[in-house]
Each structure stands twice: as C-alpha cells, then as structure tokens.
Nucleic acid binder design. Structure first.
Lengths: 366, 366
DNA sequence: CTGTTAGCGCCTTCAA
DNA sequence: TTGAAGGCGCTAACAG
C-alpha cells in the first residue's frame, strides 16, 4: 500500500526478457505475436509480462514498423452534431479494425486545416479523412502534400473541385432540388433560400449569385444549385430577394427571413440548409405572427429528434452521418491496406422525411 | 509533373544535415529549437530543411523525449452533442497549448473504457481526461493503473466515488433540485422523473430506488437525488409510480410518461434529465391529447437552439459543455506541467433558463 | 526454435 | 559553437 512516487518508468521488453530468463527477441516475438516460440518459453514470457504489468510501447513499435495504426480526422468543428456523428462513424469502424483516431477541428479556417494536416503528418498517421474547406485550386497543396508523402487521404462530406481523391459525400444538389421541388409541387413559387453565400452585397443576378456561391463551401454551393435546378425545372424565375446573404448565424437567418416575409410578394415557403438556419427561420415566422404550414411552408436539412416533436413536426432531409463516417473509414482503411482501389466516389442516400411543415400556400398569396 | 510513386520516405534530420553540410547535432539543434547554433549554420540548415520539405518525426522525438504532446480523451459517445461539446472545449484549449487529442468512445461500456485506457497508455499520451462509467469500487483499476504509471488523469462530467482525482463537473444534484423546486413553487406535487434507474422491476421504496440509482451513472444518480431533495424540502411524499425505470430510450420515456399521465392521480409536471427524455415526454404529452404547460409542465436538461423555438419554448437547464472541456484540459495541462496542484474539484455553474413550459397545474388536478 | 545484431529518427551528454 | 556517439523500446534480418 506504499504510495511511493517512484518514477514510473514502464517495464520494457528487455526487462520482461530478463525476468523470464530468455533473450530479448524471444520475448519480443511472443509479446509481439509474430515468429515462432516454444510453448514453454512462451509461458514464461507471458507470466513475466503479466507480473511486471508490461504494455508494449506503441511509439517504439511504430518507429520500427513505420505504421501507427492511427487515423487522422480533420473537420470544421467536432462540436457540431453533424461532424460529431460522422466522427462517431469513423471512430466506430476504425476502432473495430484496431485503428485509433486523432481528430482536429479547423473552425472552418484553411490555415488551421493546413496546420492540422502538418500535425498529422508529423505524427505519422496512416491516413487521413478530411472535410476540407478548400475551394480554390490553390487551396489544396496540403492535401497533395500528404499524398505525395504516401499518406492516403479521403474526403468526407465535401468534395474538392479538380482534385482526384476518394470521396464520401451525399448528393447535396439533388437533395436540395428534391426538397424545393416538393415545395413547388405543393403550389409554392415564392420560396426563400436560407442560408446562401456569405457575400456582403446582394447578388443582383443569377450569375453573380453562382459566382459568390462557388467561393463558399462546396456543400452550400451545391445546395444552392439544387434550389436553382428546381426553380428552373418548374420555370419559376429566380428572385435575388429570396436568398439570404451574409453571415451564417441563426440571428442573421431570422433577420433575412423576416425580410422575405415582408416583401410585397412575400415568401410562402422557406428552404433551410442547416439546423440553425431552420431555428432562425422559425423565429422569424413566429415574430411575423405567422404559422406554419398554413402561412409558410418549411423544409430543413439534418433531421433530429427535435424536428420530429415540433408542433407541427418538421419536414426534414436526413443525412446518414454515421454511415458517411463508416464509409469514409472503410475506404481509407482499404487504401491503407494497399488495395488497388481506383478512385471511388461514394454518394450516400439522403431521405426527405415528410412530416407536416409543408402545405399549399395561403389562398391570398397564390 | 512526374507522378512517380517513389517510396515516399520522408527526409530525416541526417539528410538535412548532409545537404546543409553540417553535423547531425547542429541540424537537430536548429530544427529542434534548442542549444546554440551560429547564425550562419542556422541559415544553411533552415534552407536545406525548407528545400527538402523536412518535417520532424514526432514519433522519434517522443521516443527520446518521453513526451507526446497528446492528450487522451475517453467518453461514452463522441456522437452525443453533449460530449461533442465537451470534446470541442478540450480540443480548443489543448490545441492552443500545442497538444493534440485522441478521443475514444466507450459506448458506456466499462470493458471498452478499460481497453481505451490501455490504448492510451500504449500510445504514451501525456495525460487523459475521462468521463468514466465506473461506479463500483472495483471498477477503477484502470484509472489508478494509469496514475501509477505517471499518467495524470482528470475526470470530467462524472465523478467516481471514493477516488481522489481532479474532477470537473456540474452540480447535478443541485441543478435538479432547483428545477424540481421551481415546479413545486408553481404548485405541482405530482412530478414525474424521466429518466430514472435502469432496473427491471419498479423500486417500491425510496431506499430501493436510491440503491438502484447508485448502481447507475453518477450523473443520473445525482439528478435523482436532487429530485428527492426538492420533494423532501417541500414535504411532498415520494411516489415510485412517478419515476421512470427501464431502458434509457426516447420510446421508453414516451411509454413511461404515458403511464404517468394515466395514473388516477396523474403527473402534472415532468422533469427530464436528458434530451431524448424530453423529446420522448413531449410525444407522450401530445399522444395523451394534452398541452404544455396548461396540462403538464415540463423542464429538461441540456438546452439547445431547438428548445428555444419550441412552441411554447421549453424551460431548460443549460450545461456549460465547452467550459467543462476547457477546464478539464486546463487542469490536466497544469498537472502535466508538474504544477503541484492539490486535488481540485471544479464545479461549474448550470443555468435554469426559464421559458414557457412551466405553469401552475390545472385546477382539476390541484 | 532462439539469441545476436542492426537499425528506425531524434535528443542529449561529452569532448573537441 | 560544433560534431561524434550512445540511447529511447521495439522490430527484423541473420546466424546458430
């Protein structure tokens, strides 16, 4: 029961070998689980290890084998439930295969993403999964650098244009198109889009809008394109006043939707591309003294148990967060195994969960 | 532009030294940022490193220095928004100080927690932060083992009885007491508790209930105690029928609340200790054709933007998730720095956010 | 089957 | 100030 503060230098394989009375290599072989060892010595070694409380030093092992059994994960924000779900998927499937995960948050900053990649390179991870904030062609040096060093990289959630990497994503554009289309089929023509690009001024033309979008996150741009697709398919003219611009915050969404609801020809439906965009919109609807779906129809991205218990319950697009992570990890792992996989581009299914936040527009506005 | 698949053996410090025409040690000194090096040679080395794209091998460095600049984090589920928030806090503050984190999910299983700790020990992390599922005295061997090996451990979110470790928690008991008390002050005496212990049968007595609770998660037990405290303070008799037992799932919560709402003397308020307990309860209230707060008052744990946009908005207890993480990381870091800190027990503040889901009980039930 | 011997890449005395 | 040499703990040929 002595509580001595002995310098806790953990037992090494040599000590185990010594107390077992065998050579280093023999101990290493049985403890490392490779090579042949006679049952006798094996027993002795195991006993000694047990007695000493031996645990292999993974660092030393990695030094000589060159593999760390560790995956790097780079996301914008591990605190965001979406990424948390993805990371959980990555973590679960890699753990199953004996890989651990070190995850870094970039706060959506490219420079932090680059720093994160360097950390992972330095730590010699066996591969990395990244939801990259890179959009410009010049933004991808850190990704190609990793690959040149022999570290496989797979993209998750976000593709990076003109970069031929394995990617696991959803079809944001189609998911958005489908959602907006369902609004159109319900009779809406004045459909708000929240949130849009983070420009300062309001893009006057469709071309400007698209240009602005392409300077933003890939997912956001895709969702905007899907919105426009649906409008086009239905021959509904695009109205710049119906797309939110500016900071992507809940309160900004509230302001913008409030504005859209006050337009001469007001919005009768709102499509939200993110959770906080939806809660912000909801606040605007309430503040305007309107009710959904009677006055305004609503569809949002990223289903949650909350959305289902709203009154009325919200129609939402469900993303397979966990599966995105699982698939990304599985892809990366097979890359690490040296499987000669051609570049893959997994597009996972989303699901439009119809509940009760969509109805026909009010008669007065039709 | 050759896409050669050269074996990407990264440049070592020796190569840098060679191409700079200096000794290994000199290169190591300038690249490692220690010891004296003349400006001249320093320049040469830096240039060579730059040219070769040199990056220090953190494994090798850790091998010889004995530190990894890596923190281990063990939580039940990184996909859970609460833990995701905590991890984000840990990650942010440790990153600031040059530490990375490797996080492991245990799925609330003690054996996975033990395995996780072993992984971290093997990887020689400098310290670990754990939200432990340990409850029995016999469950803490892996925690003490880490400490004996010289790896500092700090608990977050959950204390572990009879184990003298630094801990960063909230006062679950007081938070619960306060919430339930506010219900009582609104006039309620029939207050449901969701969720309770995962026993099979329904504890008949208060003693049995407490015993069952103490076999469960620390946080859950504390919240239950707080509930009982509030009842005691007000002289309201405890009724076993008003506490949920069984699996902690949303649907189970719905079933149990449905039951409580159908009691001869039905519940007129429900206190929920977790997000899914709240959404499950909400479903039960709706299904019973009741409205809140008119028919049933509601208070829940873990505020979110959804809770604020419910109609009516929900009164919730807010936990400082990010700050829990920050504080835990800061505490661990100072332990690692060898600061002679006496055992600390940080209890962070929660906040009862009063919104509109609490009112007086309906007259008929008073 | 077992033990000896080199490294892995870096840090760290210790002379020079 | 600089360079040579040894060691961190483990794996991996290599003889024996």
């Amino acid at each position: 029961m002595a509580e001595r503060e002995r310098t806790p230098s953990p037992p090494t394989i040599s000590e185990v070998a010594a107390t077992a009375g065998v050579g280093r290599a023999t101990a290493a072989r049985t403890l490392g689980g490779y090579g042949y060892v006679s049952p006798e010595l094996r027993e002795r070694v195991l006993a000694a290890a047990e007695q000493l409380g031996y645990r292999a030093n993974a660092l030393a092992r990695s030094m000589s084998t060159g593999v760390t059994h560790t995956l790097g994960v780079i996301v914008a924000d591990i605190g965001n439930p979406f990424f948390a779900g993805v990371v959980r998927g990555i973590s679960d499937t890699s753990r199953e295969r004996g890989f651990d995960t070190i995850v870094l948050s970039t706060h959506e900053s490219l420079s932090e993403e680059i720093a994160a990649m360097n950390v992972l390179i330095d730590k010699r991870v066996d591969g990395v999964i990244v939801a990259s904030a890179a959009v410009e062609r010049a933004d991808v040096a850190h990704l190609t650098a990793a690959i040149e060093r022999g570290i496989p990289v797979v993209l998750v959630d976000r593709e990076v244009s003109h970069l031929d990497l394995d990617a696991v994503v959803i079809d944001n554009r189609e998911a958005a198109r489908e959602a907006v289309d369902s609004l159109i089929r319900a009779g809406h023509t004045r459909i708000g889009f929240v949130w849009g690009p983070t420009t300062e001024g309001r893009p006057a033309t469709r071309r400007e809008l698209l240009a602005a979008a392409s300077r933003n996150l890939w997912t956001d741009a895709e969702r905007l394109r899907g919105y426009l697709d649906a409008l086009d398919d239905a021959g509904i003219p695009f109205d710049p006043d119906l797309v939110m611009v500016g900071e992507k915050t809940e309160s900004r969404a509230t302001d913008e939707v409030t504005r859209m609801l006050a337009l001469p020809e007001r919005a009768t439906a709102v499509f939200c591309t993110e959770t906080d965009a939806m809660t912000g919109s909801l606040r605007a609807v309430r503040a305007a003294g309107l009710a959904y779906p009677a006055d305004v129809s609503l569809i949002g991205f990223d289903d949650s148990s909350w959305a289902a218990v709203m009154d009325p319950p919200l129609t939402m697009i469900e993303q397979p967060m966990h599966e995105l992570g699982e698939t990304a990890a599985a892809t990366l792992l097979s890359l690490i195994d040296g499987k000669a996989t051609p570049r893959s581009r997994h597009t996972l299914e989303t699901k439009l969960i119809s509940r009760a936040s969509v109805s026909a527009p009010p008669v007065a506005d039709r």
